[in-house]
Design a binder for these strands. Sequence first.
DNA 1: TTGAAAGCGCTAACAC
DNA 2: GTGTTAGCGCTTTCAA
Lengths: 343, 343
Amino acid sequence: MTRIPGRALTVPPTLADVAERAGVSRQTVSNAVNNPELLRADTLVRVQEAIEELGYSPNRAARNLRTRSSHLIGLRMSPVQEFTANAAADRFVHSLVDTSREAGYQVLLFSGDATDPESGYDDLLRSTAVDAFVVTDTYLGNPQAAWLRERRAPFVAFGRPWDDPSATHPWVDVDGAAGAELATRHLLDKGHTRIAWIGWRKDSFIGEDRRSGWSRTLKERGLPTTGLASRVEDTVNSGREASAVLLDEALPTAFVCASDTLAMGVMHTLAERGMHAGEDVAVVGFDDSQTAQVMHPGLTSVRQPLEDVAIEVVSALEGLLAHPRRIAEGKLLTPTLAVRRSS
Amino acid sequence: MTRIPGRALTVPPTLADVAERAGVSRQTVSNAVNNPELLRADTLVRVQEAIEELGYSPNRAARNLRTRSSHLIGLRMSPVQEFTANAAADRFVHSLVDTSREAGYQVLLFSGDATDPESGYDDLLRSTAVDAFVVTDTYLGNPQAAWLRERRAPFVAFGRPWDDPSATHPWVDVDGAAGAELATRHLLDKGHTRIAWIGWRKDSFIGEDRRSGWSRTLKERGLPTTGLASRVEDTVNSGREASAVLLDEALPTAFVCASDTLAMGVMHTLAERGMHAGEDVAVVGFDDSQTAQVMHPGLTSVRQPLEDVAIEVVSALEGLLAHPRRIAEGKLLTPTLAVRRSS
DNA sequence: TTGAAAGCGCTAACAC
DNA sequence: GTGTTAGCGCTTTCAA
């Protein structure tokens, strides 16, 4: 925006201003912006110069009104979890923002109270404030998915529709079983044969999925799983208590945990007993949190490819918005293992 | 939205639909939504029923176009930092989203490449996509602040204008010196007299501010600071190395660190030497990260009142948008100390 | 290849 | 208290 003396900078130039300056009609300016190939080369140059000189950007509200699309993606933030090592959601938001931008979209954040999963979505949808949603909190089924589908709202889920295999919306997820398998195989390679599992309550689909990767890997090798598994809440203290019991009763030499939070609980138990992770007992967590990265001695952890998840989510979103009736697809990505000194 | 057979749900009702159903003019519906006190009670009820029945929400684009405001706040995400314990930015985003909603605003996230601080702001501003910005990354002065001010863009900064005390924009910040003082006093109360500081490079305003809280507290008590301070990069390894040198050369019994990341570095050194935090040496970090909360044995850390920061930021934003010419104010909040077993 | 007309859905200003 | 008129800035349709 060049500084025009006397005119407030707070009133940005419009299409008409550019048209006047370039000596063309408003429509031609619009075409220069949206369909430059329609203009003769010299006209295009003249218009672009005027745009540059005035610092013109199309008014978003006017464009949104006319095109009935906002190029905004709605994302509901799940509440902050303190006293856990879970930061996957935040890492994902970063990736999503970056990827969306490349696709010409921006992310509108909103929050809703935890008790009402639909709150927030409804208003945004009816006011056509966003073109689509990205739904992330699908840990225990996802009521929003059914709700959004019913309203024909375009959305992509990060997380499988566990509770409804017939669901027809696009989704992207990370193969938790493969992650746990990766972790378990890594420990097998290190010579461990008694490998314990500390996971979440049985009603957690994600927890059971991850657990299955551990159990199937041990069973494949004919190794025991009985008495070596524990299902608890996702807190440090639960992990601490569960690992203490397991150490006493099942004598494992390694732990695979459904989260870094639980793995930190194991670390507490080890420290309390004067044992050292990576020397006396191996520990592997899940999510590659900042804590896993900075703690002593470094926690081996399954890392979700959240950057790739974001790419797939945005790609699905583009498909969805371009072809609303297209059949939905699911995409399952494979995690990696960040090996550190705890194993 | 009631389901109207034959009509696609993707075309939401408009003001005109509601007006027709309620048997009033469009303007009256608009008033019912925006100035209900102007309507006679029975008319209001009738209109509200129609709104309810049709599931009407005002179209945002149309409203934004007409009112020249979007009720959106732009927030640029700083890049993800891995291998640190810094998550204050993410915690702040959560608080900001929640607080904004209460004030009728939503948060639009955008990203820009790290090399060009203005990228992203410019387009959003010229296209009138957001009403205001919240600027957070002010650790080394804030070039965006000057840039935004020059363009008369409404914004509130989380972070003082360190490099320009004459800056006239509203800001909110947390008193880092008070935080470090809190940490240092806590250690003095525990009987420590040789308290070391590990902080950031000298060109970090925030780092020097925090450091001053440590040094002034010790000087007040007539205790030594010489040789007890180290200025390094904000990485775990820097903290590890700096603490090793300090332990050897200055024999401190406690450490105050400018970040939890640095504090974790101290933890590494202690572990490597078979020493125990909280028993042999006390350690205090800064930011109350998830890592501080979940690690063994728990890291005492200065906690920024980010929820309050968000409240003050939104409040300043409201003032700014309501009275654009009002003189700017700065607000300094005091942190607290989360005491854990490392001290 | 360029221009003119119409209208997206809403609200400010004013008339009744 | 309620209705009428106009127009925010843009793009779609159609004519030149």
